[in-house]
Design a protein around this nucleic acid. Structure first.
Length: 499
RNA sequence: GGGCCGUUAGCUCAGUUGGCAGAGCACCUGACUUUUAAUCAGGGUGUCGUGGGUUCGACCCCCACACGGCCUACCA
């Protein structure tokens, strides 16, 4: 007894063997089509005379009518109907069509014509199999719907669902546009270590790994910040990196353990310049991708062109929580006030984390329109420069769209003494919160050589792509999102062996 | 971590107070020289997520587990 899948696989294997027996290589080395299907379409429409072309692609439909067969093939650019007529091919070649199934790749040459129904079609005079497929593709009409299978076998999702394919094409275009945008402004793209002795630049739980030869533990980076700043110290005035960072935290529709971050740093600039940069970048991206600077999410329309709304963090919390954090200058008093408001307060959290909790719970959900929250407390921003004339606020903003944090920027702290004190204070609070991390001496000593005044910006690329493609789950814009590894019989076996 | 929902043929989905497991597509055989979700005639099909339990009898009821989705929690 065998399953349907096994029976189909056997049928395809039988076909493969018949092909081999007949002396044909079912997996030839190369085939060089003269045109893509899209180019062939254009050629036919523009050319007055009959055009001889060769095409290659995957068979996605087969309609046989006895002595005449139509195949639809698809390549990276589009699709084309192929017409095979017994009168135009040797009988042996025509009969070979029996060995071609949906899913196989073929190359075909012939002359383009238009059918009675008006479809541009290739009249095939010769063809070759380029790859024999051994598994059936998902159903043609409904496509692949099973979400788990779509993520685990994304190639099937891409074959079946054109809108999925489009999302990832747009993703690629957006990232190219960001590079062009920054390059045009004199930024230089760089690459910095993903394996780091210390995971700094953000407060997040890192992944830990081990280098065997060096015999020391290393961390996968959680941010790009501290190495990019070293490059400003080194004399590159405008640098950026678009790269993967890794955070060992929860998975949700807005979080994947590895995600793509863009950080850029501009010497002699401050957070106001970064705000302008964000406004320019986002409105330009939207205009190029969508043809308008407005994005539609559900029934909401959000304008991305300059200027975005600006509100200080203090005023935003006042408005949504009826609480002025300046009235509560220390952790204890703020915690007391929050408890009086009926909130459950984590006793290990410091003042910065408490304020952050107020923001994410009460303020963020209301920031639908493109909004900059300005001027954060120093407690929650150890790498940002203090606001001129203030001892407890820093020049920092976060950008929000549709209730989602999308950008984070500050005027970078370049006072090495202040930076050392911030690290020390942060270390104290982390001890209270049960985390331990030593300050980054290597970064501090770099800073002591002198870093120019600098504006820095970070943008979550995946979330930006969600906005511009109208997706509400980050997994829809990451080709292979993180899923739990399914135990296979062999891995179960190895677990037993490990025990 | 908690809650709710889901898991049936390769794919998309039905199904039953608890009484032989169903359809469309795909696949196989046959017919067909302008089809295009081709059509027509015929055909095959399954660990009903996994493991227990209740029952004369479980895809269905109960328990546990796995995986996924959404919500929530966590999250610089």
């Amino acid at each position: 007894m065998s399953t349907r899948l096994e029976q189909v696989a056997q049928q395809k294997l039988d076909s493969l063997n018949r092909i081999r027996t007949s002396g044909i290589d079912p997996y030839p080395g190369s085939y060089h089509p003269s045109h893509s299907t899209e180019e062939a379409m254009t050629l036919f429409i523009q050319a007055k005379t009959e055009s001889q072309v060769s095409l290659a692609g995957r068979i996605i439909a087969k309609r046989s009518m006895g002595k005449m067969t139509f195949l639809d093939i698809r390549d990276g650019s589009g699709k084309m109907q192929l017409c095979f007529r017994q009168g135009s091919l040797e009988k042996e070649r025509y009969d070979f069509l029996n060995e071609l199934d949906i899913g196989d790749f073929i190359g075909a040459e012939g002359i383009l014509f238009r059918t009675k129904r008006g479809e541009i079609t290739l009249q095939v005079s010769n063809f070759n199999i380029l790859c024999k497929s051994l598994r059936p593709l998902p159903e043609k009409w409904h496509g692949l719907v099973n979400v788990e299978k779509r993520y685990r076998q994304r190639y099937l999702d891409l074959i079946s669902n054109k809108n999925v394919r489009t999302i990832f094409i747009i993703r690629s275009q957006i990232i190219t546009m960001i590079r062009t945008f920054l390059n045009d402004r004199g930024f230089m793209e760089v690459e910095t270590p993903m394996l780091q002795a210390q995971a700094g630049g953000a407060l997040a739980c890192p992944f830990i790994t081990h280098h065997n030869t060096l015999n020391n533990d290393l961390y996968l980076r959680i941010a790009l910040e501290l190495y990019l700043k070293r490059l400003l110290i080194g004399g590159f005035d405008r640098v950026y990196e678009i790269g993967r960072v890794f955070r060992n935290e929860g998975i949700s529709v807005k979080h994947n353990p590895e995600f793509t971050l863009m950080e850029c740093y501009q010497a002699y600039a401050d957070y106001n310049d970064m705000m302008q940069l964000v406004e320019d970048m986002f409105s330009q991206l939207a205009t190029k991708i969508l043809g308008t600077s407005k994005i539609s999410i559900g029934d909401k329309t959000i304008e991305l062109s300059s200027p975005w709304q600006r509100i200080t963090l203090r005023d935003a919390i006042k408005e949504h929580c009826n609480l002025d954090f300046e009235d509560y200058p220390d952790t204890a008093s703020l915690r007391l006030r929050m408890e009086q408001m009926g909130l459950e307060v984590d006793p290990n959290k410091g003042r910065g984390r408490l304020i952050d909790e107020l923001v994410s719970s009460f303020v963020e959900p209301h920031l639908i329109e493109a909004t900059f929250l300005l001027d954060y407390p120093v407690d929650m921003s150890p790498l940002a420069k203090k606001k001129h004339g203030s001892n407890n606020l820093v020049e920092r903003f976060e950008g929000f769209i549709n209730g989602m944090e999308i950008a984070n920027a500050f005027t970078e702290l370049n006072d090495p003494i202040d930076q050392r004190q911030r690290f020390e204070k942060q270390a104290e609070e982390q001890d209270l919160e049960g985390e331990t991390e030593v300050s980054d001496e290597d970064f501090l000593s770099a800073l002591e050589y002198g870093m120019p005044p600098t504006g820095g910006l970070g943008i979550g690329i995946d979330r930006l792509i969600m906005l511009l493609t109208g997706q509400n789950s980050i997994r829809e814009v990451i080709l292979f999102p993180q899923l739990k590894t399914k135990a296979t019989s062999s891995s179960k076996q190895s677990e037993i062996e490990d025990d």
